[in-house]
Simulated scan of single mutants.
Amino acid sequence: MKLALGKLPPQLLRKYVLTMTGAKSKELVLSPRVGLDFGVVKLRSGFLIVSSDPVTGIAKNVGRHAVVVSANDVATSGNRASFMQSVILLPERVDERTVKELTSKMADAAKQLGITIVGGHTEVTPGLERPIVMTTAFAIARSFVSAGGAKAGDTLMMTKSAGIEGTAILAEEAARRGASPTTVRRASRFFDRMSVVDDAEGAFETGFIHAMHDCTEGGVLGAVYEMGVASRIGIEVDEGKIPVASETRAVCAVLGVDPLKLIGSGALLVAVEGGKEEVVKSALYPLGISVTSIGRFQAGERTLIHEKGGRRTLIRDSPTDELWKVERTAHLVST
């Protein structure tokens, strides 16, 4: 069977990846499973939070992307990453200027987030069309939550809006397809909205958060599905309540993609104790972060989407990200 672009389907992850974990360790307190953003190792005092992510679908801003996405995953624990390692694979014929731009943007992003890059590996690799950067972020924490802690009766809240990362990535291609210059200019600035570190930290500090998960590949709907799987609980989501920025709607309309299935780093899903929604809103408001109630967790293991037309749709799997659909039909990535 030929596999689709993007993440492996959950059934293949369970069969070939998540069970292949080497030696057992009693210090591993959060082991790999579908929907979780990080692993957790017990230390003598506290916990080590670890998460890795690759950036494979873009060429521009890849350095900043690589830092932010791993920092986001660690942040969903309620803690800020302090350290990071990187693996940088460069295509043949890369020049010194490209290397400098990539690594300087990584350094700038890490400094902004308070992260120290402690090492890694960099090489020129045959067969690549563009740079691939993989980062691993680390945090030392006293406590944490994960995507697997949601409880029946919790409210599902979402920060910012859908498809933030994808909006920025696709802005250039949208321009070629006829999007207005104003839309393209504003969409390109969505790269600056990609971090959820402040979102997660602010929400976690309220003490009313049971689980968090960031909206990456597969968009909001993919993240909702993964959160339900990780927590082994049902979710009902009102599609009409999911915030979508006007720039995202415009870019997606031009390209014929679904903003709810578009890669969405920058938005955070939060399982909030029922009745404490206003506390979370009040905590994030001074940070300039919007947060919206979009659904509720309930007994069972079904993820249901209430669509705007009144139909209810059952999500049985994480959707393929819309970014890959555009990549197959247009040369959106340029070096």
Rank of each mutant, 00 (worst) to 15 (best):
D258C: 10
R232Q: 14
R296T: 03
V257W: 06
G207F: 08
T320I: 15
L323P: 07
V272W: 00
L323Q: 12
A299G: 13
F297W: 14
D214F: 14
E239S: 13
K325M: 12
S318L: 11
I235H: 06
P286T: 07
M212T: 03
E307N: 08
G274E: 06
I305F: 10
R232V: 08
Y285P: 02
D317N: 14
L304E: 07
A245I: 04
V280S: 04
G256Q: 06
A299Q: 15
P259D: 05
G256L: 13
G240H: 03
F297N: 03
V251K: 07
L287C: 09
I289C: 00
I315D: 03
S282P: 02
V280G: 04
W324G: 05
V224F: 02
H213P: 05
A271I: 03
V220F: 06
E217A: 14
V270Y: 00
G310P: 03
A299M: 09
D214Q: 14
S293A: 08
A271N: 13
V272S: 00
D258A: 02
T248Q: 05
H306N: 10
G274V: 03
L269M: 09
G218S: 03
K276S: 08
Y285S: 11
I305D: 01
V280N: 00
G288H: 00
H213Q: 13
T206P: 06
E277Y: 04
R316W: 12
H306E: 07
V237W: 10
E322W: 04
T292N: 10
